[in-house]
Design a protein around this nucleic acid. Structure first.
Lengths: 115, 115
DNA sequence: CCGAATCCTGTTTGATACTG
DNA sequence: CAGTATCAAACAGGATTCGG
């Protein structure tokens, strides 16, 4: 049923899981990744799509995702300046994990609801 | 490659993913779940296995997991009192998600490491 | 033994206004 | 347009002490 969970040492498993959590955790990471899942977007577009986010948080989280090589940031030499953000292959590779998160989230909600 | 991620509306996906994150997120949830993966344990046992955790955090996180029906808490009428914590089926169902988290964490680390 | 209560610190997040 | 600066609020985490 659950394959890898029993194979490795406890510490090892926890490290890997924590690495993953550190990257995707938080209120805004996934909304941003999902917003970018249908192609590159500019700061303003993201801001408009993720309605409740403040410019500070958007900027901060984009930086964090860039540092972790989940997205790329390209500065276009237009006037006025435009910046485009796009998922990297690593960023895209998190879709599978997000699917799992989504699926388990649904399962969880069902279980919780039927008291 | 990534099935469900494209099927649903954005809001729906985000809600489910956030539900899931809310339950498993944080520093201690997974360490506790993993510690309980080989059977029921008492408070003190958990405290000893998860070496760096403070009693306050352990108590707090156990409560949270219990509220979310991930674990059960049974009070045994011994002297002195003993309390046992055990994963519910819902708790056990998170192993698959943890596996995915673990796997992606490894993938992520590889990608990040080779510069 | 199994926690609860209290106090404290540092980080995270957010609202708002402002800049090149 | 694409952010930065500033200040305040919320929260997570920890040390320590206490109680049934």
């Amino acid at each position: 049923m659950s394959g890898k969970i029993k194979e490795k040492t406890c510490q090892f498993k926890l490290m890997a899981a924590r690495d993953a959590l550190e990257v995707i955790q938080g209120r805004w990471r996934f909304p941003i990744i999902i917003a970018l899942s249908d192609g590159k977007k500019r700061f303003g577009e993201l801001k408009r799509e993720i309605t409740e986010i403040s410019p500070k948080m958007l900027s901060q989280e984009l930086k964090s995702l860039e540092t972790n090589k989940m997205i790329t940031r390209s500065l276009l030499n237009t006037m006025p300046i435009t910046v485009e953000y796009e998922l990297t292959p690593l960023g895209t590779s998190s879709f599978k994990l997000l699917d799992e998160l989504l699926e388990w989230g649904l399962h969880f909600r069902e279980e919780i609801m039927r008291q």
